[in-house]
């Protein structure tokens, strides 16, 4: 049976895209392993990582603190509105804390981190490549992966869990502000219900593990996209966009998988 040529070219196009995607994933994986293998310099000269920690971690603090506060305030307000219908508004502290520690803290902090620090890392490495700084470094017998990429990667991996934790703390405080200070929920029940409902191992540790995974994934994508960017203005801008889009999708997909493993059957 003869298939119409348009259908064949469509199938061929899909095939090309899939092969290209698999190919790129392979290159990215190899790059990731190279970064890990060449991390010795970063760990020996930790001041290189500390310098990057300032740019990726400390400078992301403002957006994390402000967003965390508002997310917590919204959660408190919405939670109170719903819970008071059933007369259980004292459980609002539990609702706010569990939502933040298990899900919103790691996920929203990672999304913000991808758009604030991830895009900056991609743009910086991409521009260093476009202006031949990476080539110049190679010609000076200094490996750019060890000297430029690895410190940025580790700074992202280290700062992500801290940022997620700060996000959750600010959210809990935001919820407290709205429900206890403005609405007048009992302060004792807000904190004590939270304390008895939030489990360190199940909730806080799992949230921490999530944020570590997101840190690795977001920074790995950011450094790869920067290093792989075509050395032109369009190339770098395209890579920056891809960092934000890919990391956001991967964060949400990975969050579902991790949640399925961590919280299945936990009541």
């Amino acid at each position: 049976m003869l298939l119409p040529s348009r259908l064949i070219s469509g199938i061929r196009h899909i095939g090309h895209r899939v092969i290209e995607g698999v190919w790129r994933l392979g290159i990215a994986s190899r790059f990731f392993i190279l970064v890990l293998l060449k991390s010795g310099t970063s760990l020996r000269r930790f001041n290189l990582v500390i310098r990057e920690l300032y740019f990726t971690g400390v400078l992301s603090l403002i957006i994390i603190v402000v967003s965390g506060l508002f997310v917590g305030m919204v959660l408190g307000l919405q939670g109170y509105e719903t819970l008071q219908k059933y007369g259980s508004e004292s459980a609002v502290g539990t609702l706010v804390a569990l939502s933040l520690v298990r899900e919103l803290g790691p996920v929203v902090a990672a999304l913000l981190f991808a758009s604030r620090a991830g895009s900056a890392i991609t743009a910086e490495i991409g521009l260093m490549k476009a202006t031949e700084q990476l080539a110049a470094m190679g010609m000076m017998a200094v490996d750019p992966i060890a000297r430029v990429v690895a410190p940025r990667f580790w700074s992202g991996v280290i700062s992500m869990p801290f940022l997620a934790a700060i996000f959750s703390v600010m959210g809990v405080f935001g919820g407290y502000l709205v429900t206890v200070v403005f609405i007048g929920v009992d302060e004792g029940s807000y904190w004590s219900q939270m304390q008895s409902a939030v489990d360190f191992r199940f909730d806080i540790m799992n949230g921490f593990i999530k944020s570590c995974c997101f840190g690795v994934v977001v920074t790995a994508i950011a450094v790869f996209e920067g290093y792989d960017a075509p050395p032109t203005a369009e190339g770098v801008s395209g890579a920056t966009t891809r960092t934000v889009v890919t990391s956001s999708l991967v964060i949400l997909g990975l969050d579902f998988i991790l949640t399925a493993f961590m919280f299945r059957g936990v009541s």
């Binding site: 260093m128 202006t131 031949e132 700084q133 110049a136 000076m140 017998a141």
Partner: peptide, 27 residues
């Protein structure tokens, strides 16, 4: 071997995050 070679790129390719002094001191 590359430590015995220097290369001057078309537009200099100075490290933009380092000062003039640190650029020269880099190697």
């Amino acid at each position: 071997l590359r430590r015995k070679m220097g290369m001057l790129f078309q537009f200099g390719a100075l490290f933009t995050d380092l000062s003039v002094f640190d650029n020269v001191a880099f190697q």
